[in-house]
Design a protein around this nucleic acid. Structure first.
Lengths: 349, 349
DNA sequence: TTTCAACGATATATCGATTTACAATTCAAG
DNA sequence: CTTGAATTGTAAATCGATATATCGTTGAAA
């Protein structure tokens, strides 16, 4: 009965493995073997199959192919926000790696919301992805629990909690922040406004800790003022505006995430301050527009390409070896000290 | 034998429809009916099924569910570049709509390369997506041909060729560009450097045409100089640098895409020019950083949300009615005339 | 009382591949 | 010449769901 199907299907759009088998006068199982590169196939059969594949323009259905082994050639990637070019770059890099590895990437966004992250994780589990790369939206462990419960190979990227039960790949946030703070210090700044999103996000916590450690390590005392900004541009902007209205405006600001960087620069524009004469500014993450400002904005540069490469590497490793102990990987950042940080003569207040 | 399977599976991670059926003492077919909301199910059976679903934490496999009807609950979206926040926003919006409509979005990128676009299209066809939303990387029709041949419901977004055989949703590029040019004209500019990517991309062609039309329509003659920049930031930067080295530097630049905007601003920074005293600048597409420059960069604002909404709408419509004639939709842009365009007193050279 | 439509429920085929178990063939060893 | 192992090829089960044909009931019309 399959045979009649194969015959009837011949005029339809996409040929199946049965059409190929029929044309090559072999069984579907043999075709499957040839397609998968299994060795135990006679040379003439193999070549007839290949010929039939070519002639019919046959392409394997990747879903059906993996239906039986219950793991699909799909990798899920959850980013907090597609609008952020840093995450965009990450998606692009991982997509390249996935394609090269024969996987299809399904990139979804959590909109920086924990509930959305949950929903996306459930959806990816429904789709039986072979693995997940996750940039968490929150410090909560609830979403992570589901992944663990389903024994899903998972790599946490960028926002890596030290106590998380998964593999993690991130940058050395503390070291990078410390470098930037030392640069401020060396240029005479003794008071630094540090703008963070949610201080409980692991990467933020590490950056803040790096700032604090650097401030402790220098010889003259340095005042560190932490400003919690929320994760959106709106919340960062209003938090920043409130801070600038209240008390003395800071002479130096280190924005630990992009929305805060934009918020400072907005405030700077609004109050008609000059950079770096009136205020020194540094950011975290590098974007092209930072170099067209005058002066260009000093910033920490995260090695996105390497981040993606290591994350992918570990994910494949994890898929192969589900039982190895999870490992955390730290990649160093470079820091580009651009013109937005001025040397102050006296001691900053 | 299915029964033994169902029994054996009970301890495994994800329950199947057979487990639910077994627990509710009905057949799998009945469970399927309940899940799909088919009416012809007895009330007690339905409630027993729902109870079993709850107790087992059953979730349907969306792939297997659609395996038989040969169209998956998947929509493919091909963007030229994830790093561009304009496309990022588009992905985010369409993802939201897809989720609300019970589809999963598979977003892939073509890296602005025609061959890559081909590969991605083939891959999406392999995955039997129910529809495709495409932002083409080139004016070529080859990729489009495959989609047509497979009768794939397809919506072209942003770069809509008038003669394309698909539905298209884009902005009114010509009108928006014309508005901007009139603004330049009204501020005394009589010479405009217009930076385009590939002039054969439909949206670029329309923008250029809008520029030309506006220049023809004004009373005093206006000189329009078109600069082809390629699509990457690197190529735009070097094209712009060459232009500024050669002959008189322009007093007014209209960058028709983001990389050109960045390229102009780079050149401005390099040559230490002042905006808008020495040079007036306008861009296409709105990005947050444009408002933190001083002065802020004037630009055309594309209504991303509406673009996405209309594209989605049309796609669903196209899936329902494969045979209707394709339609092109144009959405008006707003133009934000910010401080980067100066009034010049004399007649610009 | 018989017949038939409507209805609820189920068995079975199906989507397009992989996998398993087994059959057929060949060939070397005993 | 027989036996056993190795090699190749195939039929049938399988993945997790949906669609279809069918079957047994029930109630109303003939």
């Amino acid at each position: 009965m399959r045979n009649t199907m194969a015959t009837r299907r011949r005029d339809m759009a996409r040929p199946t493995i049965y059409d190929v088998a029929h044309r090559a006068s072999v069984s579907p199982a043999t075709v499957s073997k040839v397609l998968r590169g299994v060795e135990t196939v006679g040379a003439d059969n193999a070549s007839r199959v290949n010929k039939a594949v070519r002639e019919l323009g046959y392409r394997r259905d990747p879903l059906a192919a993996n239906l039986r082994r219950n793991r699909r050639a799909l990798i899920g990637l959850i980013v907090p926000d597609f609008r952020n070019p840093f995450f965009g770059a990450l998606v692009a890099e991982i997509e390249k790696l996935a394609e090269a590895g024969g996987y299809r990437l399904v990139a979804v966004s959590s909109s920086e919301a924990e509930t959305m992250e949950h929903r996306q994780i459930e959806a990816l589990l429904d789709w039986r992805v072979a693995g997940v790369i996750l940039i968490p939206s929150s410090a909560g462990l609830a979403s992570v629990r589901r992944l663990k419960a389903e024994a899903m190979p998972t790599i946490i990227v960028d926002r890596v909690a030290a106590n998380s039960p998964f593999d993690g790949v991130g940058v050395d946030n503390a070291e990078a922040s410390a470098k930037m703070v030392r640069h401020f210090y060396d240029h005479g700044h003794r008071h630094l406004l540090v703008a963070a999103s949610a201080p409980d996000l692991p990467n933020m916590a590490e950056r803040i800790e790096g700032v604090r450690a650097a401030a402790r390590a220098v010889s003259e005392p340095m005042r560190i003022e932490i400003l919690a900004c929320g994760s959106s541009l709106d919340s960062a902007t209003s938090a920043m505006a409130r801070r600038f209205e209240r008390g003395t405006p800071p002479k130096a600001v280190f924005a630990l995430f992009i929305q805060a960087t934009l918020a400072v620069l907005r405030e700077v524009a609004k109050l008609n301050l000059r950079i770096p004469e009136d205020i020194s500014v540094a950011g975290f993450d590098d974007f092209e527009w930072m170099q067209v400002m005058h002066p260009p904005v000093a910033t920490v540069i995260q090695p996105v390409e390497e981040l993606a490469a290591r994350a992918w590497e570990r994910l494949l490793h994890r898929i192969e070896h589900p039982d190895r102990a999870p490992a955390k990987l730290r990649i160093p950042c470079s820091v580009d000290f651009r013109g937005s940080i001025a040397a102050v003569s006296g001691i900053g207040r």
